[in-house]
Amino acid sequence: MVRSRDDIVRTIGKPLLADDERVKISCRNVNVYYGEKRAIREVSVDIAEQEVTAFIGPSGCGKSTFLRCINRMNDTIKSCRVEGEITLDREDIYDRNVDPVLLRARIGMVFQKPNPFPKSIFENVAYGPRIHGLARNKSELDEIVITSLEKAGLFSEVKDQLDHPGTGLSGGQQQRLCIARAISVQPEVILMDEPCSALDPIATAKIEELIDELRRNFTIIIVTHSMQQAARVSQRTAFFHLGNLVEVDDTNTIFVNPEHKLTQDYITGRYG
């Protein structure tokens, strides 16, 4: 049977988790439109708690778009419209009563290009706690900043230059600063949109190590175009293709024994 490109692929593998307790985020029949164009088609998937889930797929497949739906960053794009249901701890995040500000305090994000604010390192990390009023006084704020930097594995490198501008750091350090900034408000979930694509291999390795470390405290979703990275850092992997979620499974299964022809072709490098 010849499939037209508009056909909806039924996701194969294990998109939904058997163990309800482990579900942190669940998405059901999510569609995303840019104006008239449908960028995400009928995606249903569960994200497990305290685990790294990787979204992979060729560029333009919609994995980043989907990621930005999860903390409602797509709200900022006027033509963008989201259909379907996404829940965080069984609570619909697109419900009218849900405040995007509060939601984003629970779901942090790290971007493709390191984007520290043009402020000092300290101010970069203190930004979140300040706006949310998480620190009652200066010493509490200091503590939050130091813990966040420590968790991001950056503190030892910058402890003498906290008042230097964040933009003066190297690319890898900048990205870890951004991670520190994201975890400073102690979110439950961290979304990472190709966090290493602008970095060199050594900086990448450090970030990957960090992600493995952070897994203990946070639920992490990482979008990556590097299959090796997905294989290295994630426990579960979801493969997107042309707006469809083709296959989701344990990372091992996906890379060793993919079910779908498209997944197989992609991870063996037929296209990408």
């Binding site: 405040d99 949310h132 009023g133």
Partner: peptide, 18 residues
């Protein structure tokens, strides 16, 4: 970090939202 800590933190943020 446990659930209660998260609750407390969220309530703190909520209190300032208005």
């Amino acid at each position: 970090m446990n659930k209660q800590d998260h609750e407390a933190r969220l309530n703190l943020i909520k209190s300032r939202l208005k």
